[in-house]
Design a protein around this nucleic acid. Sequence first.
DNA 1: CTACCGATATTCT
DNA 2: GAATATCGGTAGA
Length: 208
Amino acid sequence: MSDRLDLLLRRPVLEVAPRLLGAVLRHGEVAVRLTEVEAYDGANDPGSHAYRGQTPRNSVMFGPPGHLYVYFTYGMHHCCNVVCGPEGVASAVLLRAGEVVAGADIAQGRRLGATDRDLARGPARLCSALGLDLTYNGLSLAGPELLLEPRSRAVSASLVSTGPRVGLRPAAERPWRFWLSGEPTVSAYRPAVARRTRRQVDALTDTR
DNA sequence: CTACCGATATTCT
DNA sequence: GAATATCGGTAGA
């Protein structure tokens, strides 16, 4: 891993996350410039997969920085994170959205029907556009297959917006989502909502 | 544009 | 059994 990437990813996750805005993640011919990320602070963060300790799914988060943590959710989607902090500290940055800056034809093939703007607009869409799934879990971001190219300097703070994370109930108030202001590829904000259970639906629709 | 909802594996209670 | 770091399709304003 380049010294620059290693030094960056060893910093506290709340410093790393905004500094990844504008960085480029490459997988083969496809490259995405990151426009939206979220910080997850391991054992200190009730919203983190690592909050209750190590499991088979989250074990990569507990390893060294500079690797990709990929998880499978909702029975059909993949999402990916950059593991950061020193080994043993299970913090990570969820890659929520980006702009496809190379290999758009390949990304289109993986995201049939999507407009350019929507190719990587959302964490599962970003994974799909880059062709990332569980077989990439734990892979190094220092190449050759996967390469994370950080900016030499963080984007100006005036271009960065922050707000609550998306889709979380625990610790939803923490403003740990970071995005580039005004970028069209930033995902639509959807607050977590408690959905009715099937039983409640049945009770409401019971005619009797 | 917003709102809702189904699909569905893994983890948690 | 229920919740979940989501998305795409549909309906309606």
